[in-house]
Simulated assay, not measured.
Amino acid sequence: MITVALAAALRDAGLRWHPTTGDRFVIDKPGVDDDVYTVSEMTVERHDYPSGTVLGFNGTTEWALDSVDAAESLWLPREDQLRDLLGPAFVSLTKSGSDFVVTAVVGGTSQEFGAPGAADAYGGALHAYIRSALD
């Protein structure tokens, strides 16, 4: 799972979230951003309204929450989602020592992005890819 800091950097770079079953997220507020939630038809359910998307909490573990606006949530994309978002820019994932290294074509050149976890390596590559697309 990627770090909250990397997820925030991806969001701030322009990555948008359209909640779907299986997605993980934190509530983007101090003091409650340590708990990771999963969108599920049984526990956290997505509700689309004209005013925006709301994530409804229906299970006993989230008894203190009724719902939270998706804009107040921070998506923690999975490794497979990050790889899919890289699309054709993705070249490879390898292991180098204790790090995972993602090679991706960013701004027309092949670049490497290393991190202790594969998801963070993908996230770093995606962050650079999004930023290069904005330049």
Rank of each mutant, 00 (worst) to 15 (best):
D12T: 10
P30L: 13
I2N: 02
G52F: 11
N58F: 14
A121D: 00
D35T: 08
L85E: 01
L76C: 04
F113D: 00
G123D: 05
F113G: 02
H47S: 15
I130Q: 11
F90T: 00
Q81R: 02
T3Y: 03
D66H: 12
E112H: 04
A125V: 04
F90R: 01
L74D: 03
R11I: 02
Q81S: 12
T3E: 10
L76W: 00
V54A: 15
S96H: 05
L93W: 04
S73I: 05
P50T: 01
R16V: 15
D34T: 09
A9F: 05
L86E: 01
L15P: 00
T20N: 13
D28Y: 03
V4K: 00
D84I: 07
D84Y: 08
T61D: 14
G14W: 15
T109F: 08
F25S: 03
F90Q: 00
Q111I: 09
L134M: 13
V68Y: 02
G124H: 06
H47K: 14
G52N: 04
L10F: 06
S73G: 11
T53W: 07
V26T: 00
D66S: 12
S67P: 03
L74F: 05
G114F: 01
S73L: 12
M42Y: 08
V105S: 03
R24F: 15
A118T: 06
L85Y: 05
W17A: 12
S110Y: 14
Y122N: 06
A115P: 00
P77L: 09
Y37K: 02
Q111T: 03
A133H: 14
G31C: 14
F25K: 05
T38R: 06
D80E: 15
S73Q: 01
T21D: 12
A121N: 01
A7W: 03
P19F: 13
L76A: 01
L82S: 08
H47E: 13
I2P: 05
I130L: 14
E72T: 09
F90I: 06
T53S: 12
D69H: 12
D33N: 14
W63K: 08
G108M: 11
G108R: 02
A89D: 06
G52Q: 01
G56I: 13
G56M: 10
F113Y: 05
V91I: 12
Y122L: 11
F25G: 00
K29N: 13
V91P: 00
R46L: 12
D120P: 04
I27W: 03
R24S: 12
L76R: 03
H18W: 13
S40K: 07
V32M: 12
A133Q: 12
T43A: 15
